[in-house]
Every structure is written in structure tokens, then in C-alpha cells.
Write a protein that binds this DNA or RNA. Structure first.
Lengths: 191, 191
DNA sequence: CGCGTAATTGAAAAGTATCAACACTGGTGG
DNA sequence: CCACCAGTGTTGATACTTTTCAATTACGCG
């Protein structure tokens, strides 16, 4: 549920240690909005530490969380390829430390470094593979099943993420999430 | 709604005309299942002509359509990067003609041809940009609004695609789609 | 303590799915 | 030419799920 990309982060670390390229670094406090949707930024970030959420806000102010980004996940890269404004907002959950690439450095690396190129391409492909089944799942199964799946995937869930974020991730209201959780509790007590 | 990628298809046509690489070609009759989810294939296809649907089938047999693929759209490429089985099925709607790459040729092109590399990368990025807002939309607005949006985007909709596919694309039952359509008709008559 | 934020819960309203029946169409064979 | 069939589309009634709204409680922190 909180996605990571170990191969990417470790490769970037070695690049950074060599010092050939001027890879930047940033630290964001908890609950900082790093990207706001429909804006332009010239940066690509890769998370070293911490968790961020990537989400879309609709006209009614409701958030729909696309994914939770952990170590090695990048964001801001889509805008390098398409030269458009962001489609998602990104905000840190806890303290987030990240590598920071300018668009030009990012492009340069893509051209000059074939390992980097492959890692990024695999990263993009994985994002697609991740997104595809997610929504079909949530549609096909009742909320309870979705919650169960999350709890298996990520037991510490409720300790790290606020309920609202979990609900927004599943795509339901907090009310519905709470009902599902309560019913699950009752079923477990019954056993 | 039916996605296309003109720059990719025209570049592949020039590659094909040069004849340096052995790019294959295939033709599929209407309603042919080209890929079945959770299987392995060694091919990447790029559509020259026709429309295909890319969808996930859940355990209850319900289809959830990810996207409709038109000219220049590729499928089967995700499995080149991650070496896993397919997550989606792909089936032709009408007659589909497509370029066909073996995985090894595809990889070779990615390495040797930087234009090809960039086009593919942009294609992946566009798929992500496309998928992200889609489900948040469908969740945030009632069916009627979703139908209206589709009709604006693609007026010939109902002439080409069966109702079931449209419903599966929006993520509702045919019954609900029909109700929405009927209510829209009544509202228009009222004006 | 008091404040703001997050979590919990109930009741009513809205939206959607399910199920079942029926209409329409194009093609096939008697 | 008609009867039949399969596939697709249409519609109504009902049951179920989820949202909405509103009220209350719990918690962390200056």
C-alpha cells in the first residue's frame, strides 16, 4: 500500500556519492503541500525517507488518494515528459527527505545514463501496473473486504495514517470506513 | 475517451518503411481476445487501425474497462519492464491491425533509438496521467455527469461501442447507465 | 482548562445493484 | 415468408449500500 522502489533509491545514492551530477536534496515538514495540482514546477523528487500522499482534489473539495509514496518513489516526473501542469497534489504525511532533480538534470540523466533510464522506465510501468487493478478492486468488493486487504498489507495502518486519508484512499467517506471497521470488530469478537 | 498516439504511430511507420528492423504486423477480427489477464506473451503491439478495449475481469466475472485503445496506442509493453504476467485482458472491438514487436526487438529499439525511447517514455507517462483523474471523477460525480462528459468527448459513442462496454468503462451496471440516459433524454425534452 | 482537530455514531436520504420481464434486431433454416 | 433464436437493449420494482447531515466524544497541546 505504501509503495517503495529500492533499486531506484540505491542507484541514486551511488550517483549522489560519486558527485558527478549536482543532485539536490530537500526536507519537508509533516503535512507540507509539496505540489499543488494544476501548477507547474521544474523539479522531480525521489523520496529518501518518510511518506507522502499523492492525491486529486475535486470541485467539491473531496480528496481522492492515488498512492502513498515511500522510499524510492518519485513524483513530478510526469511533467518532464508531457510539459503540462501537475494532475496531482503531493503532501508529506510525516517528515520527508528527498533527492531533488531539476528537469534539465533529469533529462540529461535519462539520455546519458542507460541504467537510470531503465530504472525510470520500470518505475513508470510499475505505476501503471499498480493503478490498474486498484480501482477495479474497490468497485468489485464491499468496503469491508477492501479494509481487510489493507490491514493484511499494512497492519500498522491506523497508527500512521489518519482515518480520513485511509477513507480517501479506498474512495469512501469516513462514515462508511468506520462502519466497516466496527462490523469487522464485532465479527472478531464473535469468534 | 478512445486514446491515440499519433507521434508514436508515425514514427514507427517510418521505422517500418526503412526496413532496418523486422517489425511484424498482425490483424485481429472483431471481438478477438488478444491478451488474457494473468498470462505471459512475448509481444508488444501498437495499433495501426481499429479499436481495442483493455480491461480487468474480477472474480464475479464483471469487466472493468481501463481504456479504449485507438491508433498509435500500445499494449503488452508493461511486461517488458517488469517480467510479470499481464494484468489486463485486451480484446478488439472492430477489426484491429497492429504492428507487432518481440520483446527483444522492443528492448533493442529502446536502447539503440533514443527517439523511440523518448516516445515510449512519454506514452507511459501519458497512461498514468490518463488513469489518475479517471477514477476520481467517476467517484465524485453521479452517473449522469459521467455520461454527459463522455457524450461531449465522443458523440458517436453508442454507435461504435456496445452499451455493456460503455457501462463497464464508467464502472456501473447497464441498468444504471440506461436510467441515466433516459433521465437525460427527459430533461432535454423538457427544454 | 480550553481549543482545535480527529474519531465515532445514529437516522434519514440518495444512489446503485439486483432480479426479472419484455422489446428489438439480424440472421438461419424450415 | 414466417418461426425461431441469440444477442443486445430497455424498463420496473425491490433490496441493499453508501452518503449526507448532525450531534457527540476523545485526544493532543499550548
Amino acid at each position: 500500500m505504501i509503495r517503495t522502489n529500492q533499486s531506484l533509491i540505491s542507484y541514486i545514492r551511488t550517483l549522489d556519492n560519486k558527485g558527478t551530477y549536482g543532485i539536490g536534496a530537500s526536507i519537508f515538514e509533516p503535512k507540507t503541500t509539496i505540489f499543488r495540482q494544476n501548477h507547474r514546477y521544474g523539479k522531480v523528487y525521489v523520496i529518501k525517507r518518510g511518506i507522502a500522499k499523492c492525491y486529486i482534489t475535486d470541485e467539491n473539495g473531496r480528496e481522492f488518494i492515488q498512492e502513498f509514496l515511500g522510499e524510492g518513489m518519485e513524483f513530478g516526473e510526469l511533467e518532464v515528459f508531457s510539459d503540462k501542469s501537475t494532475i496531482c497534489s503531493v503532501a508529506s504525511i510525516n517528515e520527508v527527505e528527498a533527492f531533488c532533480f531539476t528537469h534539465s538534470l533529469y533529462k540529461q540523466l535519462l539520455e546519458e545514463d542507460s541504467t537510470f533510464n531503465k530504472l525510470i522506465m520500470k518505475g513508470l510501468a510499475d505505476k501503471i501496473r499498480y493503478k490498474a487493478p486498484r480501482h477495479s478492486y474497490q468497485h468489485s468488493y464491499p468496503i469491508e473486504d477492501n479494509v481487510l486487504r489493507l490491514q493484511k498489507l499494512f497492519p500498522q495502518l491506523t497508527e500512521i495514517l489518519p482515518k480520513k486519508d485511509i477513507a480517501n484512499y479506498i474512495g469512501v467517506t469516513t462514515r462508511s470506513l468506520n462502519r466497516a471497521l466496527k462490523e469487522l470488530r464485532q465479527k472478531n469478537d464473535g469468534n
